[in-house]
Nucleic acid binder design. Structure first.
Lengths: 214, 214
DNA sequence: GAACCTCCTGACCACATGGTAGAGGTTCGG
DNA sequence: CCGAACCTCTACCATGTGGTCAGGAGGTTC
């Protein structure tokens, strides 16, 4: 529908100049942060604007509505996620090594940008309208991962099992790591690098036991 | 949507009168359902009342405020959760068998009352005020589980590892099973009994590999 | 200097929200 | 029959919400 006119700012292709982010970008990032932690319903445009030190109407100038903003946020998050995974998948490594590399990169992301995975969790709520949008973005990636796993299984590099369910378990675990900080605290653990490393090791062990033929 | 009527089929209870639930109870259950799926912020008292066919003010008569309602819902959910776990823990079985029994009962719960685990997820959002309330309720249970695991480790029945992190992983998995239906669909799987069974098997395999000395 | 553009803002609006006040209505003991 | 506690309702309110409108500041073009 209302395709946001891309304001000439598509020049941000090559030079990684640390240029001051445009207002539009600042809004996007703040919204991602807030949607990913406080939730969509829990975030008001007024709060967002106040936090950014701008007028709410400025948000609505750049994004036609709150829903449009969410859509943009989802698009951005999907792109970022895809980039992370693509990078990890670039290696031509096969078998277990590739999986391990992938898991490590996602855990790094979970640690650095927990709100990004928080957004996943938020958006994938049952009945969410943006769920479809997100999965449209991620579907090819998932498909690719699935085909890779299945090919590896067929080739005998990995043990046969339901690739999609394995992916799902890995997903749950990583998102859990990023979003269940409160639970962590409740169990009496302060989230540290170490605990994350342990959980990563656990996931790897699980994947290994599920996928690697002994 | 209908059939809020709990079958009350707790296995070993002596035929409690299936009395029509009081308005207060109906409110509590509807709120649990809605908070656990649509979220707290996403649930308005008006919607809730309309859905129940009562006036909003009736809700506010029984529960002083929306927050008070949430508190009551959290209390109720914690009680239900505790009851489920307690029942599974009643057996004097030791070692792996007990763990397996526990996992099975929780999966059963995840299948039957996904909104209950959805509420967990909702409430354990970073910064949630009710997180503390929930963990107050569940803390003794967690502690008990931890001590059990550690004792079993010390006794050599289970392999040594960080009991709390194992618990956390199990938690993530189960809550994921209950709440990530949209993700499941996005990956191209319709949630069925079978997929749940597979994921339960996976969790058990993981726990086994983490806990059982080969 | 005028016309035009992009970016941003203050003033304002319709409406949904959580919450209050008060008026019945029902039930039950005295 | 009376009152009292309990429950539910209609009517209303203050505030916060997403969103509209008109316009201003700064720059570029002719």
């Amino acid at each position: 529908m209302a395709a946001i006119v891309d304001p000439a700012g598509s020049a941000a292709s090559d030079s990684p100049a640390p240029a001051a982010p445009s207002t539009k970008e600042r809004i996007l990032h703040a919204a991602l942060e807030s949607f990913g932690t406080t939730g969509f319903d829990g975030t008001s445009l007024d709060d967002l604007a106040r936090h950014l030190g701008i007028a709410k109407q400025t948000i609505l100038y750049h994004y036609a509505s709150k829903d449009a903003l969410l859509a943009a946020v989802v698009d951005h998050a999907a792109a970022e996620l895809t980039a992370t995974l693509e990078e990890a998948l670039r290696s031509e490594e096969l078998g277990w090594g590739r999986i391990e590399r992938l898991v490590r990169s996602v855990f790094r992301l979970a640690l650095r940008r927990p709100e990004l995975l928080g957004l996943l969790r938020e958006v994938s709520r049952p009945g969410s309208a943006s769920a479809a949008r997100l999965s449209d973005h991620l579907e090819p990636l998932v498909e690719r991962a699935r085909l890779f796993l299945e090919a590896e299984m067929a080739a005998g590099h990995l043990r046969s099992s339901d690739a999609r369910l394995v992916l799902l378990s890995a997903y749950s675990t990583v998102v859990g790591v990023a979003t269940e900080v409160e639970v962590l605290k409740a169990v009496g653990i302060e989230p540290t690098l170490r605990t994350t490393a342990v959980r990563r090791r656990e996931l790897l062990r699980f994947l290994r036991s599920a996928l690697v033929a002994d």
